[in-house]
Design a protein around this nucleic acid. Structure first.
Lengths: 144, 144
DNA sequence: GTGGCTGCAAACATTTTGCATAACT
DNA sequence: AGTTATGCAAAATGTTTGCAGCCAC
C-alpha cells in the first residue's frame, strides 16, 4: 500500500485529515491508468462498494491538486475536467478525435518550453498545459 | 474593409448567408487585439450600437471556427472559452496568473510538435493547444 | 417565396457553495 | 471535545437547443 501511505502522510503533514472519502477517491485515482472525469471517479468509487458525494469528490480533488498529489487537465473544449495522479515527469497529452484515445508523451518538449520562457523572457513558468488533437496512426490507417 | 470582405466571401463560398449578427460579431473579433470571451464579444457588439443574442454569438463563432475564420482557446481550467480571429501563424499562449495578461508567442515550438508526432509516431495533428501559466517578468519583479 | 438564421426561453452539464450533521484526531 | 470534512440541496456558470417568426437570397 504505497499510494495509501503517500496520501496519509501528505495529508497529515499539511494538517489535513485522512478521511474515508478522500481515501476512496485516491484509491481510484492511483489505481487508474487513464484520465478520469469526476463522474467516472464517482462511478468507480461506487463500484468499489463505497459511496462518496460528487461535491466531496470535487473538494478532495481540489485538495489533492493543492498538495501536488493530483493534476487536472482539460482535454477538449468545454468537456469535463480530467484528473490523474501527479507524475513527477513532465508530459503532455495527445488525443485522437476518432477513437478518443489519450496518450501520454514524455519528452523534452515541455522542458524546452520552460527554458525558452524562463531564460528568454523572464517568465516564471508554473504550469504547461499542452494538448494535441488529431488522428492516431491506427485510425489514420483504417479510414484511408 | 478587408476583413468584412473576407467574411462575406468565405460565408458565400460555403453556402452560408451574410447576416447582420454574423457581421457584427466578426467586426468585433477582427478589430480586437486580445482574446475575448463570448460575454466580452456581446458587450462590444452592444457598445457598437448593435444587439445580438448570446445564442447567435455562440452559433456565429461555431460557424467561424468551422470555416477557419476564428479559433477557440481555453486559457484556464473551467473558465469561459476565449475567441480570436484565426491567424495563419502557429502560436501559443502565455498567461500571467498575477496580472492576467495574455501573450502570444510565435515560435518553432508548435511546428516542432507537429513534426515530432507526425514523423515519429504517425499521428496526424489537427490542432495544438498550448497554454503556459506562471508569472510574467513584470509581476515577478514587482513582488520579488 | 423559401429555407436558413435569429431571438427568446428553457434545458443542460459541470462545478461551487451554504449549512446542519457526522467523523477524524 | 473540538473541528474539520461530509452530504444534501440549491445556486452559479457557461453553453446548447427547440421553436416560431424574420430576413437574406
Amino acid at each position: 500500500m504505497d499510494a495509501a501511505l503517500e496520501l496519509d502522510q501528505t495529508l497529515r503533514a499539511q494538517g489535513h485529515r485522512s478521511t474515508r472519502p478522500r481515501r476512496a477517491v485516491w484509491r481510484v485515482l492511483a489505481g487508474a491508468d487513464a484520465h478520469l472525469t469526476v463522474e467516472q471517479i464517482a462511478q468507480a468509487v461506487r463500484e468499489a462498494g463505497e459511496d462518496v458525494d460528487l461535491a466531496s469528490i470535487y473538494r478532495a480533488l481540489a485538495l489533492f491538486a493543492e498538495l501536488d498529489l493530483a493534476r487536472e487537465t482539460h482535454l477538449g473544449g468545454q468537456e469535463a475536467a480530467r484528473w490523474e495522479r501527479a507524475h513527477p515527469d513532465e508530459h503532455f497529452h495527445v488525443v485522437c478525435g476518432v477513437c478518443g484515445d489519450v496518450d501520454h508523451h514524455v519528452g523534452s518538449l515541455v522542458a524546452q518550453i520552460y527554458e525558452h520562457l524562463d531564460e528568454g523572457h523572464g517568465f516564471e513558468v508554473h504550469d504547461v498545459d499542452l494538448v494535441v488533437t488529431g488522428r492516431c496512426a491506427t485510425c489514420r490507417g483504417s479510414v484511408a
